[in-house]
Design a protein around this nucleic acid. Structure first.
Length: 876
RNA sequence: GAUCGCGUAACUCAGUGGUAGAGUACUUCCUUGACAUGGAAGAAGUCGUUGGUUCAAGUCCAAUCGUGAUCACCA
């Protein structure tokens, strides 16, 4: 049995049940906030669809929390709000997960066949989607679940075919033989799917004999096994060591095939031996050289990496295993001159970590020209990055774009909607149902391209395909409606991690622009990665992974959400730590206990009506609340989640609890008003902490969610008149209280109750209004207000007032030390201000406002100094 | 090599040209009738370094050091 502590907030009791009710009542749907919707206010944000490969991690928790904060804010602020949920089929990643499952069962995808394999993949999709969506519910997020989509559902499949045809017809999609990145496990990859890693390899120096028998040349290579594909050796034309050999022939070791020595400026004379083997079919640079010199392209291994007949006796070996065997043979036969250590970078498949090969293959590509307009429009300000510096990365990447390889040799994905006729050779794109005969010659001897599309092709359409674009009749009226494109496109905002800027964001921008004529969203917020408390990337091997569900279990959903929000500073890594989570947890507890306090006095509190706030303290807290509302809204509007959260923390804890509640103990009649303000501030906080705010709002309204309407569909607070006068009055009250407390520490009374104190206030202060607050919080039985300094007492001098407490025998040295320090500080300040104000150029150039502020500060500091000096004189 | 961040109190970090801020930790005190997951008071910073612009620089500019990320090339 776990003990339940009194006065400790227990979130577990409410989180699941509230969520269930919210969802049942359709609050998350686009008309969930019907009663507060304002006309023509629409807000759309797409959920980046999680991969159906597993479960949520802390990065998901961050991204979805931030999205939910904005969505709840907009929904409460009267927008018709669409937060579009869904999941991504994640081609390679999911296929690999399923393959691993099969492997564990002792079988393979080839053994069970394409159909059975796809069945397994769909099963994986179901399992993962269920896990993910139930975890998302735990996070308290509020997407329009009724519209949940999957990138491979029929409607999105239709959109893929339609957009493919459009791009094909416009000449942006072509099929060609290119040198691409080839993974012998996963097939063709786009450039960004290859990760380059530092690796300590070897540099092999190999002798190639000259055909005329006049000697050898030595080439240097890191990949000796590729020499069977060499079709030339090149030297720099200006290389005086070697250029006399241009035009001569050499024989490749062992196989004795002859290749020519050619001249090409690509060679770096400083590097290696100056002789470079040219393997046009297996190296990106050599590919270009090969094209320049019209060389033969010899491919030496098949799609699985198995060496072919060009490799002589090594035929049948796997490319990686072959290296050592070949090297051994070259050593034995004397062709190997030397082997040195050589650090270099090796490309790996981003999904299976296999070493990627440059490989010539016939694939489908999206031409790089496709991106042109999206580059221009983003740079014209039609979309905006938060933080803004990301536009640099966007431009850098976009300007170096190469054609995007979109065909994948996988089974799991959108099959390419291109058909070929075996009889007449016709090739065409079919955007409708699969045809049974050739559209040109009517032959039934046709087949569909067996490859599937890069997973990012369909996710690139996500901002509009989910709104019904190209869906055909699928889902019409249930998953989407005909007004959706008009109302929700372009989307207002995208929130996602910077790590998929190129993979996804850039692709959405170019596809959206080309296919709909408009960029798909206006604002692009890119958040950082969640790191551990030391700033280390989380990884299973390091054992520093923070699991969102465990965290929720320990600290509550609200605490996790608030922590992530408070740490989400634009442009900085998020270092998540237990300390921060504890702090947020404590904050929820504080709010819970504030409610307990309010309800000691009365059970029910009305909703806030500013005109009904009459007591001075009520008016003061209302004024502070207004400041908080203004700041929170301003920060939300520019996606400064950390600042918004900090404002709320400061207001609710530092102002409402520490001062408002404490002061109300001297003003019982203000409690009813404070309760109303607190209820309203629960609305303000709701987007960050949806559960506790609902709970406390309901408690203070004496309602339950079962009977009442949720806080999540009530109007977000707006700013009413801020009463500056009452803020001034209470600033003075608080200054007096702090001064009394400080004075008491001088006589070692801590915060104990004392009998008498005197305060000298500025003239015109409303002393009778102030008295009860100062007496109560300063813990003074008898408080008197005086016009002159009192003899024989300790004194505290603050900006606007002085406090005196009579004393007989106490050690004065501490007091003198304190006053002396205060004096020095004031003198320094006065000197600084004087320096500025005596500077003619400052007075001539600075804004009047600044000069006035400084004059006033100087005056106040001088006054204060005079008082401090007078005190010191008394001790002399 | 190129580009982009970051460097502010012991720690984690805000800071939008106008007297340097928060939370945690620390020191001292308080179990006061919401909360010890709490309250009060306090101490703590040559804002990486050096120049420059400006009446005024943590903030803008340049250089430099440290640190991190991304992209690219190395046969």
């Amino acid at each position: 049995m776990s003990e339940t502590k009194k006065n400790v907030y227990n979130p577990k009791e409410i989180e699941d049940s509230y969520y269930k009710l919210w969802e049942e009542r359709n609050y998350f749907e686009i008309d969930g906030n019907k009663s507060i919707q304002k006309s023509n206010r629409y807000f759309t944000i797409m959920m980046p669809p999680p991969n159906v490969t597993g479960k949520l991690h802390i990065g998901h928790a961050l991204t979805f929390t931030l999205q939910d904060i904005i969505v709840r804010y907009k929904r409460m602020d009267g927008y018709k709000t669409l937060w579009q949920p869904g999941v991504d089929h994640a081609g390679i990643a999911t296929q690999n997960v399923v393959e691993k499952q099969l492997l564990a069962e002792g079988t393979t995808k080839e053994e069970i066949g394409r159909e059975a394999f796809l069945e397994r993949a769909w099963q994986q999709k179901e399992n993962s989607q269920n896990a993910i969506t139930s975890q998302l519910r735990k996070l308290g997020v509020s997407p329009a679940w009724s519209r949940e989509r999957f990138t491979m559902d029929e409607g999105l499949g239709n959109a893929v075919k339609k957009s493919f045809k459009q791009m094909y017809d416009n000449g942006f999609i072509v099929r060609d033989n290119y040198m691409i990145n080839w993974c012998t496990h996963d097939g063709a990859l786009s450039d960004i799917e290859v990760e380059h890693e530092d690796h300590m390899g070897k540099m092999y120096h190999i002798n190639y004999p000259l055909s005329d028998g006049s000697g050898n040349i030595t080439v240097a290579t890191t990949r000796p096994e590729t020499y069977f594909g060499d079709t030339a050796v090149m030297v720099h034309p200006d290389d005086e060591r070697h250029n006399h050999l241009i035009g001569k022939k050499v024989k490749l070791p062992l196989i004795e095939r002859e290749v020519e020595i050619i001249a090409d400026k690509h060679v770096d004379m400083e590097f290696g031996t100056g002789f470079v083997k040219v393997t046009p079919a297996h190296d990106t640079n050599d590919y270009e050289v090969g094209k320049r010199h019209d060389l033969e392209f010899i491919t030496i291994f098949d799609e699985k990496g198995i060496l072919n007949g060009y490799c002589g006796e090594f035929e049948g070996l796997e490319r990686l295993e072959a290296r050592d065997v070949i090297v051994k043979k070259l050593e034995d036969t004397g062709f190997m001159v030397k082997i040195e250590d050589h650090p270099h970078q090796v490309g790996h498949c981003y999904r299976c970590k296999n070493i990627v090969e440059p490989y010539i293959s016939k694939q489908w590509f999206v031409k790089k020209e496709f991106a042109q307009k999206a580059i221009e429009k983003v740079n014209n300000g039609e979309a905006e990055f938060f933080p803004s510096h990301w536009i640099n990365s966007y431009n850098a990447w976009m300007s170096e774009l190469r054609d995007w390889c979109i065909s994948r040799q996988l089974w799991w994905g959108h099959q390419i909607p291109v058909f070929y006729c075996n009889d007449c050779g016709h090739e065409w794109v079919e955007e409708g149902d699969a045809p049974t005969s050739c559209e040109k010659c009517n032959s039934e001897n046709i087949y569909q391209d067996p490859d599937v599309l890069d997973t990012w092709f369909s996710s690139g359409l996500w901002p509009f395909s989910t709104l019904g674009w190209g869906n055909g009749e699928f889902g019409k009226g249930t998953l989407w409606s005909e007004d959706d494109m008009k109302n929700f496109y372009p989307n207002n905002l995208l929130i996602t991690g910077f790590d998929i800027l190129f993979f996804w964001v850039a692709r959405m921008l170019m596809m959206g622009e080309n296919i709909t004529g408009e960029l798909p969203f206006k604002d692009i917020y890119l958040h950082a990665l969640v790191k551990d408390e030391h700033g280390e990337k989380m990884s299973k091997s390091k054992g520093n992974v923070i699991d969102p569900l465990e965290t929720i279990d320990k600290y509550s959903t609200d605490a996790l959400r608030f922590t992530l929000a408070v740490l989400a500073v634009q442009g900085r890594d998020i270092k998540l730590s237990e300390d921060k989570l504890e702090q947020s947890r404590n904050f929820t507890n504080k709010l819970f206990n504030a409610t307990n306090f309010l309800q000691l006095n009365q059970e029910h509190f009305d909703d806030l009506d500013p005109t009904n706030i009459k007591t001075p303290l009520g008016r003061y807290m209302l004024a502070r609340f207004n400041v908080a509302v203004k700041e929170t809204r301003e920060f939300m509007d520019v996606y400064r989640f950390n600042d918004g959260a900090t404002v709320l923390y400061r207001f609710l804890w530092g102002e409402f609890c520490d001062w408002g509640i404490e002061l109300s103990k001297a003003s019982k009649e203000s409690v009813a008003e404070l309760g109303s303000i607190f209820k309203e501030s629960m609305k303000l906080l709701h987007p960050f902490m949806p559960f506790i705010t609902e709970n406390l709002y309901m408690r203070l309204s004496e309602e339950s969610l079962e009977e009442g309407e949720s806080i999540m569909v009530k109007a977000y607070p707006t700013v009413s008149q801020v009463d500056d006068e009452v803020i001034k009055q209470f600033d003075l009250i608080m200054e007096a209280i702090v001064s009394v407390r400080r004075c008491k520490t001088l006589i070692d009374k801590g915060n104990q109750k004392i009998e008498k104190a005197s305060i000298k206030l500025p003239s015109g202060s409303d002393v009778e209004m102030m008295r009860p607050f100062i007496q109560k919080l300063g813990k003074v039985e008898e408080l008197s207000f005086v016009d002159e300094k009192i003899a024989n007492c300790v004194t505290d001098v603050s900006d606007n007032l002085e406090t005196f407490i009579s004393t007989d025998d106490i050690d004065m040295s501490a007091i003198i030390a304190k006053l002396t320090k205060q004096k020095e500080k004031l003198e320094k300040e006065i000197a600084k201000l004087n320096g500025m104000l005596n500077n003619e150029r400052f007075v001539a150039n600075a804004p009047k406002q600044v000069i006035a502020t400084n004059r006033k500060a100087l005056e106040e500091a001088s006054d204060k100094l005079a008082k401090v000096e007078e005190e010191l004189k008394g001790f002399a």
